[in-house]
Amino acid sequence: MPIASQISMVPVVVDDEKCIAEKGCRTCIDVCPLDVLWINEESGKAYMKYDECWYCMPCEADCPTDAVTVNIPYLLR
């Protein structure tokens, strides 16, 4: 059974300028109830890897540098 990948606009946006994940911060990744935030191996910054969001906001509320913004998923807007 062949598999295809489809693109998806994800609701959580991380500002790379502000994100300090490369210094070891994992706050947003730790608190996400759905475990959908990850580290981008190339940039060392956090990003939303899986489009499985409850727009619940701990990632944004707990980020120490205000780097995270939670948008409402496109299908709900």
Binding site: L34, E52, W54, Y55, C56, P73, L75, L76
Partner: peptide
Amino acid sequence: ASGYLFGTYENPS
């Protein structure tokens, strides 16, 4: 109704 799998009333976890 939105069709978004994780857009549930309950925390989807």
